[in-house]
Simulated assay, not measured.
Amino acid sequence: MHLTQLNQQCLLHVFSFLDKDNRSSLSQTCVRLREVFLDPCLWTRLHFSSPSQLRQDNFILGPSLRYLTISWHSSRVQQVCNIEDWLKSSFQKDICSKHQSLVTDFLQQVCHKCPNLLLLSLSGCAHISDQDVLSVLRSCPRLRCLFLENCVRITDSVLEGVVTYGSSLQEVRVDFCRNVSQSGLQRVRESRPELSLRAERSARMIPDSLPEERENIRKTLQKVLVFS
């Protein structure tokens, strides 16, 4: 029996064992397998291990998507992307310019095409902003789980969005997000006590501050020391 003689459900089951690249390669062998590749039922889960993978055409983004994970665990995140913009050298800025909008642009597509998303997990996505996550919260009302890890630009504004827009949320994690505050976390706990909220290390990390803000803090400390 030839592979293409299997019915649609069997072929979908076969495709489900393949990663995105192998699915795409197999779909290019004949029209029948291309139809299987394009079936929305095949694309309920997507996982990307680097922003560059978001540029590829080996997946289908649509209303069937339920679980989306974008994780980027690389030394570049720690050494370049996680540094405040005003501290980056021109070389570091040049590196960031090549990928800094990739996740943002992709999440905009998710907002338009994937209203039934249930889980969004972003790890090491240093360039995403509060607005990126808030757009997803507004566009995906069924979202149950929001996991953010080492997303350094995320602030308490996202926590406000969780309270305002995340009526379906059951679990939220904001781990190692240094610009999330204890007061922001407390507001979520008070407003949504039934929500499972985790913030490993986030509220205990040193938040970002502009150079002039750091200077004001330094002068204040000097005055305290002078008059103490």
Rank of each mutant, 00 (worst) to 15 (best):
residue 47 H to L: 07
residue 66 R to C: 08
residue 70 I to V: 14
residue 43 W to K: 01
residue 141 P to L: 02
residue 212 E to K: 02
residue 148 L to H: 05
residue 119 L to I: 10
residue 103 V to E: 15
residue 31 V to E: 04
residue 48 F to P: 13
residue 150 N to H: 04
residue 168 S to Y: 00
residue 67 Y to M: 10
residue 128 I to P: 14
residue 139 S to L: 09
residue 109 Q to V: 04
residue 117 L to V: 05
residue 118 L to V: 01
residue 17 F to S: 15
residue 198 R to N: 06
residue 61 L to W: 09
residue 20 K to E: 07
residue 221 L to C: 09
residue 85 D to E: 10
residue 94 D to W: 11
residue 56 Q to R: 12
residue 138 R to D: 02
residue 155 T to S: 14
residue 219 K to N: 02
residue 162 V to N: 07
residue 16 S to C: 13
residue 70 I to M: 09
residue 179 N to A: 05
residue 157 S to H: 10
residue 219 K to S: 06
residue 206 I to P: 00
residue 209 S to R: 03
residue 1 M to A: 12
residue 216 N to H: 03
residue 212 E to Y: 11
residue 27 S to D: 00
residue 80 V to E: 06
residue 184 G to Q: 07
residue 136 V to G: 03
residue 76 R to A: 07
residue 187 R to Q: 13
residue 126 A to L: 09
residue 29 T to Y: 01
residue 24 S to P: 00
residue 8 Q to S: 10
residue 204 R to V: 01
residue 120 L to I: 05
residue 58 N to A: 02
residue 180 V to R: 07
residue 226 V to S: 11
residue 27 S to M: 00
residue 33 L to V: 10
residue 193 P to A: 13
residue 90 S to Y: 08
residue 132 D to Y: 05
residue 14 V to E: 11
residue 107 L to P: 13
residue 14 V to A: 13
residue 25 S to K: 08
residue 170 Q to K: 09
residue 206 I to L: 11
residue 175 D to E: 09
residue 57 D to V: 00
residue 40 P to C: 06
residue 27 S to A: 15
residue 148 L to G: 05
residue 226 V to M: 10
residue 112 H to P: 00
residue 177 C to A: 06
residue 81 C to K: 03
residue 215 E to Q: 04
residue 186 Q to Y: 04
residue 51 P to V: 13
residue 209 S to A: 10
residue 43 W to Y: 01
residue 109 Q to S: 14
residue 197 L to K: 02
residue 42 L to I: 05
residue 123 S to V: 15
residue 46 L to M: 12
residue 167 S to D: 09
residue 33 L to Q: 10
residue 141 P to R: 02
residue 69 T to W: 00
residue 89 S to T: 15
residue 137 L to S: 02
residue 54 L to Q: 13
residue 228 S to P: 00
residue 11 L to F: 04
residue 217 I to T: 06
residue 199 A to C: 06
residue 12 L to C: 13
residue 33 L to S: 10
residue 72 W to Y: 15
residue 172 V to P: 08
residue 172 V to K: 04
residue 219 K to F: 01
residue 202 S to D: 11
residue 104 T to H: 14
residue 172 V to G: 11
residue 64 S to K: 14
residue 46 L to K: 03
residue 182 Q to Y: 08
residue 199 A to S: 14
residue 184 G to F: 11
residue 83 I to Q: 12
residue 1 M to Y: 03
residue 44 T to C: 02
residue 22 N to L: 03
residue 56 Q to N: 11
residue 3 L to K: 08
residue 148 L to S: 09
residue 50 S to R: 06
residue 121 S to C: 11
residue 62 G to Y: 01
residue 104 T to M: 04
residue 195 L to H: 04
residue 113 K to G: 10
residue 25 S to P: 00
residue 19 D to K: 08
residue 63 P to A: 15
residue 202 S to L: 08
residue 146 L to M: 03
residue 121 S to G: 07
residue 132 D to T: 06
residue 35 E to M: 02
residue 82 N to S: 15
residue 175 D to F: 05
residue 144 R to Q: 12
residue 224 V to N: 03
residue 159 L to C: 04
residue 195 L to A: 11
residue 11 L to V: 05
residue 169 L to I: 04
residue 29 T to L: 09
